[in-house]
Amino acid sequence: MSAIDHYINDIIVRGGAEALEDGSAATEAHHLLLALATFEDTAAHRVLTAAGLGRQAIREALDREFEHSLNAVGVSLSSYRLPRPSRDPERTAAMGASARLAIERGFATSTGKKDLRPAHLLLGVLDTEIGTVPRALALAGVDRAELMAHVRGTLPHETW
């Protein structure tokens, strides 16, 4: 397997762990974003960090989006005191539709498999105006288009 194959596998496994941790049935695009912010020494990680989007900041932005979306229909998360349910240690999360789309879009931003790098995967996650990722970023005051421009800016000169 090539370095990018290992990296994609790591991102999917880490994204799955993020999904299980927040009680989601499937790995979605925002779980991949958390994973991209976890693995260091990539241009994708550097751009996210420079924008103030470390893993914890993204987690908080996603939590705010969850609460905001519930509030829109009159549900207040603060009125629930849910005990933390036990998890099946052997369970793995399935890949959700938004995660599949993000990876497909990431592939589409590269000129081919040999060109594919972590920054392309980040572009794939960011390249949508619909869904949890753009909503969470907007609520956090992050300009998604500008963030994407910074990611694209790394492509000509950063090899990984």
Partner: peptide, 22 residues
């Protein structure tokens, strides 16, 4: 906003089910 609320409610329902069944 309406569609995002559907997604969030499903997730909340899943979390509530896990907690309530346990």
């Amino acid at each position: 906003d309406a569609l995002a609320a559907v997604v969030a409610l499903r997730r909340l329902a899943d979390q509530l089910e896990d907690a309530a069944v346990e």
